[in-house]
Design a protein around this nucleic acid. Structure first.
Lengths: 208, 208, 208, 208
DNA sequence: AATGAATGAGTGTTCATTCAT
DNA sequence: TATGAATGAACACTCATTCAT
């Protein structure tokens, strides 16, 4: 109850440190997105407005930085689930959250080479992915089941897994042009990927 | 019938050139698989047993080599479709070809960074992917439809697209542990990825 | 009895300051011995348990720290001469002191690169070496001469110079294997370096 | 007898390679002398007029370059022994060679930190030092013994070891000023280090 | 045409030094 | 005054690319 634990003395450079931490993560995210996870450290430090040494101090290994970015975005995606749950009815929250997840997965694309690098530092990440997101999503699903707007008995894990796979751009964009196929059309609901829309339609209960 | 291919002198070196070309492509494929498409040129030239200059002569840009490897494997995958079609009944040929495609897609994983690099040199590749494979696969589908062993009205493009997406390892292994879900079980058919098996089951016609 | 050391306020920190000074010198000595005089400042500050800034405050230049360590050990070696003179007969004191000098010279080895760096800051060191040690050693020599146990007319400077040169490991171990030459043998007297033993034998007077 | 082995085809860039090898060794020697064996590679490459890559190609490890310089100078010092032996009477040849050795030892000073670094790459060097020089010097000694101008029964190894230790500047120049002691004076013979002169006087036979 | 030595820009990483706290 | 976070210059090393042979 007391705020005592925030008052302890060694607060020192906290302001700078926090600013730097945020700036570095944002810069790294941007650099990774543009140049891949092999983006030059100098690029990242320049974007963040800090010296390279600052990044090395906080993230001695490149993998430390990559993981931090992963975790930062993963946590943001999880927090978004809570935010949407508080603001929207379950089915709508789920639909909107699917977009958040799609953005996360899109960013994660560049991480593939790291994940596949064999560096054991990355081993915990896939587990964290489900571990962090599933509980949040499960609550939305349960809310919806209780309200009768989401099909009951659905596992968050399955939903997350299916959504993230579908959100994936597929075999590296290996398709001709399917945009002219209009026959799945009448489910248009603003969700970018039609496959995702179909899945969500299947999960949510029509009011009939 | 035509003697065209052996009437001119400068054809002498053709044998060497072909050997080199093959060796370089094989070396590049191996190097790309192990080290990614950024594999050092020296590694590739050493594996191929040629000087670096020889690779640069034939592939002035790295993208030229990457594309050549892509095309080489793509053509092999397409040729495999023909081979399987000649040797097996349609449904079996399709099932076996799905494995070829899976191998191709697996290899292609490392190419993602190149494909996403924004280099316009890679723009034609996705189109070639479908353009080269679809006609071959379509003939298998048509054969099967005629024989009544494959569901009629299926588009090769859709099959290729679905298979390649499913062959993909998904969101970088981002799942908890789903291996305990046994209820899809009774469709085991020897295909590695169960999702692919399910899809193929759906495409092929039960003997009913 | 004198209250001199606790009568003024600013003396409060003196204890800390002394502790820090000692800690820094000890840490620097150890770091220089292990890593050479180019040892990272952070290593030294960490060993000393102080922040890098503290070292820079007291030794703005690295050469200041190097010189301080040199002086600290030089003074200790000089003090040892006094201590041994008080405790042992002259010849024995000289013999024991030769070991102290050998240890000092051994440590000083890593300083060579600094001494040879051309930095004028180091210019006074060789002079200090003789200037500090010679008077102390001279008293031992004189004591011995008076007692008839050390050859008279010996200059401390010459002894120090000879001992330190002999204590040196020589031309970087550039010798084959001379250990099989046994004919100097019967002068064994417990001193590590046989050449030093010979020299001391020459300086001290046999009781005959 | 035939010069056949010098005529083989693959002579290619030999001219450049030889020039580069010499240039790099000379540059490294100079850089090591001025800046120590930690001299920046770029400095060395710039002095040699080659790219850094060229040095790394020929000396993948810094120790490879250091060792090469050591060997190059060691061989030159050994060759000088042969040259002097052919040109001068034994005693004079020995006296002059002592100067060559002094120059070599002086250069070797900067190598101490490398030799003492614990890197096993340097382990063979001390042995090579004696192994390469001793046979050459022994012939001069034997010539002199036969001619009656050099004391017989002297081991080259001992001479080399003594000369190199004496040539050494001693305990880092740690002496006051001994130049005013004139009593060793009458042996002045043009050799820089008086101690070396004394040693040589002892080795050579006065005509009496 | 093939080779591989040479080049040097690019990048990771360290660490002396400064300075906000 | 002491601390240690931040900075950025310096340096090792790699590797794409060129080009003499």
């Amino acid at each position: 109850m007391t705020a005592a634990e925030n008052d302890v003395a060694p607060r020192r450079k906290r302001a700078d440190a926090v600013r730097n931490t945020e700036a570095v993560l944002a810069a790294a995210k941007a650099a990774f997105a543009e140049l891949g996870v092999d983006a030059p450290m100098r690029d990242i430090s320049a974007r963040a407005g800090v010296g390279v040494g600052t990044i090395y101090r906080n993230y001695p290994q490149r993998s430390d930085l990559i993981i931090a970015v992963f975790r930062h975005e993963l946590d943001a995606t999880a927090a978004e689930a809570d935010r949407l749950r508080a603001e929207f009815p379950p089915a709508e929250a789920l639909r909107r959250w699917a977009d958040s997840l799609a953005r996360f997965v899109a960013t994660k694309h560049g991480f593939a080479s790291a994940l596949h690098s064999g560096d054991p530092a990355y081993a915990p990440l896939p587990g964290q992915f489900i571990g962090v997101l599933a509980p949040k999503v499960q609550r939305i699903l349960d809310d919806g089941a209780a309200a009768g707007t989401i099909r009951p008995g659905i596992r968050a894990e399955d939903v997350i897994y299916a959504l993230s796979r579908l959100a994936d751009s597929g075999p590296e964009g290996a398709r001709g042009d399917e945009s002219d196929r209009g026959d799945e059309g009448d489910r248009d609901d603003g969700t970018e990927n039609p496959m995702v829309g179909i899945l969500l339609d299947g999960l949510t209960t029509k009011s009939v």
